[in-house]
Computed example of a mutant assay.
Amino acid sequence: MTTSLELVDSHDDESVKTAVARRLRQELAGKPRRISQRVIAEAVGMTQQQLSGRLIGKIEFGVEELTNVCEATHIDLVYVMTGVRKNPRHPGGDDGGQGVRPKGFEPLTS
């Protein structure tokens, strides 16, 4: 039985802090309007240098720091931390459970 957290999209030689930083950078780059590191840092109470060190994986994000950055930039914290994207068509997802449901949740037919 393993007790370590297995990252879904990490590379063999990639640490957790590096994988988190990589996913966050990818998400920031994919935003329609790019936000500067300076603006993000100011929004979360960091300096640009502190944020930069974390984004390149040199310094590990604290949970509260990462949460604040994700909230300020509207990025999915769970994805950044684990590499797993939530399914919006799953019960409890963004569509309120109106989309595809897992097997066993189908309505009964007469």
Rank of each mutant, 00 (worst) to 15 (best):
G53R: 04
V84L: 14
G57S: 10
G53M: 02
P88L: 06
A21K: 01
L51Q: 02
R101A: 15
T47P: 01
S110D: 11
F105W: 13
G83F: 08
D95A: 04
T47E: 07
T47N: 07
L51K: 00
K86Q: 14
M46G: 02
G97Q: 05
R34V: 07
D9H: 08
F105C: 14
N87F: 04
D12H: 12
E64N: 10
H90D: 07
G53A: 04
E64D: 15
E60K: 13
R34C: 00
T2M: 09
F105H: 11
K58W: 09
T67Q: 11
D76V: 02
S110V: 08
M46S: 05
Q37M: 09
E65D: 14
E64L: 12
I56C: 13
Y79L: 01
R25N: 11
S15P: 00
L28G: 08
N87C: 14
Q26G: 08
Q49C: 05
E60P: 03
D95K: 04
H90C: 09
G96T: 04
G92P: 05
G99L: 02
Q49I: 10
V69N: 00
Q48F: 04
G96A: 05
K31W: 04
R85G: 09
D9K: 06
I59T: 15
I40Y: 02
V100K: 12
V8A: 12
D13G: 07
T2I: 10
R33S: 11
V63E: 12
A41C: 08
T3Y: 13
K31M: 13
M46P: 00
A19G: 10
K58A: 15
L55C: 02
V8W: 10
E65N: 14
D9E: 12
G97E: 03
T3H: 13
Q98A: 15
V80L: 05
K17E: 15
V8G: 02
G57H: 05
G62D: 13
E14K: 09
T2C: 06
A41Q: 01
F105G: 03
R33W: 03
R22K: 10
Y79E: 01
D94E: 14
E64K: 12
S10N: 15
T18G: 09
V100F: 09
H90M: 14
R101G: 08
G83Y: 10
E14D: 11
T109G: 06
G99I: 01
K17L: 11
H90W: 11
A29T: 11
F61D: 01
Y79N: 00
P91Y: 02
R54E: 00
R34L: 10
P32Y: 07
K103W: 10
T82E: 08
R25P: 02
D13K: 12
Y79D: 03
F105I: 00
Q49F: 08
A41E: 01
L28I: 14
A72M: 03
D94I: 07
P107G: 02
S110W: 05
L108A: 13
V78I: 14
G30A: 14
I56F: 03
L55G: 01
D76A: 06
L66G: 01
D95T: 10
G99C: 06
V78Q: 12
L51R: 01
L28H: 09
A21D: 04
F61N: 02
E42H: 09
P32V: 09
V80N: 01
A43F: 00
R101Y: 02
H11N: 11
T47M: 07
T3F: 10
